[in-house]
Each structure stands twice: as C-alpha cells, then as structure tokens.
Design a binder for these strands. Structure first.
Lengths: 254, 254
DNA sequence: CAGTGGTCTAGACCACGCC
DNA sequence: GCGTGGTCTAGACCACTGC
C-alpha cells in the first residue's frame, strides 16, 4: 500500500513543475480537501519539500514555489597533486542501466541535444558492506554503445581509456549539502531528511568534449571531507588569509 | 511563550547527555505522559533529533541514543596554491564574545587543559546583507588577552600576525553536511532542518601550537563549493582515477 | 475582517520485534 | 499477546497578512 504522504508529495511535485519560481500554490486547507488528507498529513509532505528547498512558506500569506537558488560559490585554487585516500574496501552495485533521452537539463550539461540519447546508470556504493553513496551517471549514448554493468567494474574512467579511446582530462565539480528524500534514504539505509553531501560533476576529455555528468549523494553520517591547509605568509592581500572570509580551504595533506 | 516542542527537545537532550551511545530511552507513550504532550508533538521533537543524528529509532524495539559516528574520511592530497575566490561583499557581526572554561572536548582540540580559559566568539557572516554563516571561534585566552570585537574586523589572522606576533601556518579542516536546529535556523533565517555545511577547523602556528578552533555552519541554499579538477593520465593505479571510487577531487581552478 | 500558515490535542489503526 | 514505533484523522486555537 502506498503512503498518503508519498501520494501528496508526488502531487505537489508535479504542481511545482508546472509553475515558475515564486508562483503561489493552493493553501494547505484547499489541498487537504482536494487530496482527501488531513492537515498534519499534508503538512508532513510539505515539510519535506521545504527542507529540500523546493517550496517556501510565508506565514499569513501562503506557500510558493521556491525562487531560484542564489549561490555563493567558493572556488578552490590549487593544483591537483595526487588522488586522495579513503579507508575500507569500496564496492559498487549497479541498480539500473538504461538508455533514455537527455532532456533539457542534462542535455545542457553534456552539450548535446535534449532529444539525443544517453546512458543513465544508477549505482550504489558501499564501504565495508554499508551503503555510503548513491550515484547517477549520465553518458552520451554514442560514446559508449553497448555499455554493460560489467564494463563499470574496473572503474568507468579506465573503461573509457582502454575500450573507448576516450581520455577524461578535467572536470568541474560542486559540493553542497542536502537532505535525503524517502527513496534515497531507503537505499542508503538512513532516516528520511538525513543530511547528505551532493556532488555534481561534469567531466570532459582532452578535446574539451563533455563525456559524463555525475550526481552523487553521500551519507552525511558516514562521510566527511578532510583536508590539511598550509597558510602562506607573504600574500598581497592579508585579509584574504582569514579563512573565515574566504581564505585557503584546501591544502597539502598529511 | 515557549514552544512545547522546544521544551520536549531540551528534556530529550539532557536525557541523551546522561546516557551512553546505544542506551535506550523511554518509549514515546511514556514520554508523552511524563512531559504532558500529545504523541505527534513528541514525535516532531524526536524527528529533529533523529535528523540531527542524536537518536535512532527501531521499529518495534524502541528509541536509542545514537552510536558514535563511524566516518569515512576522504582526504584531499594537493598543494595549496592561492586563496580561493568568492563573490559579493562579506561582512560579519559579532553576536557574542566571552571568556569561558575550555572543557574536555575543545580543550583536547587546542591541546590545553579543560580548566584553562579560552575566548569564545560567536559571529554571523553576511554576503550582500543576507546571513550565510554562523561561526564559533575558540582561542586560548592567554594568546589574546583583552581581545575585543573590533580586533576581529580586519580578519582574525591579520590581527594575530600584526598585534600578537602569532603566525598561523597550517590547519586541519573537515567538512560534513548537517541540518540546522531551531536556534541556528533562526539566526541564518532559514527553516528548521534546512541543510547546511559544517566546517570544523583547527589552526596551528609555525611552532605547531594550536591557536584556534573554529566551527562554522554555512547555509546550504546559499553556499556551494566549486572546484575544477585536472585528471592526470600516467598514474600508477588506474583504478584510483575513477573519481567515484576516490579519485581526484580537487584541482586547478579556472 | 477573512484567509493563511503554526501549533497542538486525543484517539485510532497498522506493522514490527520479542517473549 | 503485548509493547514498540509508523501513520493518519478531525478539529481546535493562535499569530500573521492583507484588505
């Protein structure tokens, strides 16, 4: 049997999709009547969407589709030196592998037509048997015809180099905090609304052609980024050295 | 008037403090009777503590103090090159500045006695007028006697160098996702349980002496870490180049 | 003033773990 | 069977917004 909260959430999500940021959505009491649920039930569903950043509530005014994020980006300026370390034995399980149409959002990321095909792989990553990350990998279908789950076992980059003659060269990645929805939380075996890190990465090959777009969710209770920073002295702008004001975030590791 | 949920949360927090990880706490119905609240109200308070990772629920068994975190640490191995960039005009407001005893946890971080004094500064940071981060700065009191809010205006590191003859040289920092409690959410002007990034940093001077311990919460809806990675080719272990398995996370920025 | 979200109650039924 | 958490209801009152 399906939970009422889920049904309400789906209804709200399609409602949000069909509107623009800032648009109002019906009042709580109206929605209760429309969907045939009590107010606490409706509010529980709305709570989740508010925490996820899709809806905003304004006391005495109403509920609205959240405005577009205005993000303060903090960029790391440093040279890559080597691969990072992590402990434990990593394994990964392919949950799904299918060819789909790119769509507008992902098409733009990969610089391909929204109508063109791409391979969408859903993977669950484990450390020492415990699920730690849920990964969505998107690759233009013409780059990897006939891709199978087995091809991913030795690492996708290795597969691209050895079997496809594609050399991933650089990537742009963003990291932001988020909370997990019902489905994600279930796969990662944590309670709903648990904190997580969202990694968003687009990788290009030596020719500058985008070869993959990856969205990964890492469990917040099992995952942490640790870095060791070296703070120089003779900077042009001493104020920039105050880490809290945008100082050196990344550095040499132990 | 105080919210019931807050009173319940405080009660639960002291209950958690007085127990050890894994210990059971009374059942929901028992707590309702003890605290004189209805079950949905109690559950709302518990939901918050579960999302924060302090309590775990087990269906049919009961509620327990959460076990200690087992964290998968991912370290960045690279050289610091320069300070990162961020846009907008940053300002900061000192909410509180007081001298307190270090206590066990922070004393250990700063390698000082739990009984010794330290200065605790609470700052709210803004970008273009909007609150974006809540920062708790802890400094051994004997390093900065007579510290005032004005001393922090040009940047704390600059103050240490110019007025105290202390040269911060390196730091160890961790970043993890979390959700904001009622108080933090109010200060940052976002809904409770909103996602945030928790920065935890200990900085030492050229002699290796810890000079500050900082805990900062950054709004997840306004803050994002962006980095550009360069993926080398001739690695010893090709599997390590698969970013998803622990590949190169940090790199040269545009 | 009417309509909105914010909070809270008392009680019901279900699903799961344990004895 | 019994106690646990998981879900849901119907309705109440308060606080805020806007006319």
């Amino acid at each position: 049997m399906e939970l009422k909260r889920e049904r309400v959430r789906e209804h709200l999500l399609t409602m949000i999709d069909s509107r623009r940021p800032g648009d109002a959505i019906p009042s709580e009491r109206t929605l209760c009547a429309t969907l045939g649920v009590s107010r606490p039930t409706l509010r529980a569903a709305v709570d989740e969407l508010v925490a996820t950043g899709l809806l905003v509530r304004e006391h005495g005014r109403g509920m609205f589709v959240a405005p577009d994020k205005i993000t303060q980006e903090l960029v790391a300026e440093n040279h890559v030196a080597d691969a990072p370390r992590s402990r434990g034995s990593w394994t990964s399980t392919v949950l799904d592998l299918r060819t789909v149409h790119a769509g507008a959002r992902i098409g733009r990321r990969l610089a391909i037509s929204p109508a063109s095909e791409l391979v969408h792989v859903t993977r669950l990553r484990h450390v020492d048997g415990a699920p730690i990350a849920l990964e969505h990998l998107h690759v233009p279908a013409d780059l990897v015809p006939g891709l199978t789950a087995a091809d991913l076992e030795g690492g996708f980059y290795a597969h691209l180099r050895r079997r496809r003659g594609i050399r991933p060269a650089h990537a742009v990645q963003s990291i932001e905090p988020t909370v997990l929805n019902e489905e994600e939380a279930a796969l990662l075996e944590v309670p709903v609304l648990s904190p997580a890190l969202l990694f968003d990465r687009t990788t290009s090959d030596t020719g500058g052609r985008p070869v993959e777009y990856v969205r990964s969710l890492y469990r917040g209770d099992r995952y942490r980024i640790v870095s060791r920073l070296t703070l120089g002295e003779g900077r042009a702008d001493p104020a920039a050295e105050d880490v809290g004001r945008g100082g050196a975030w990344w550095g040499t590791v132990e």
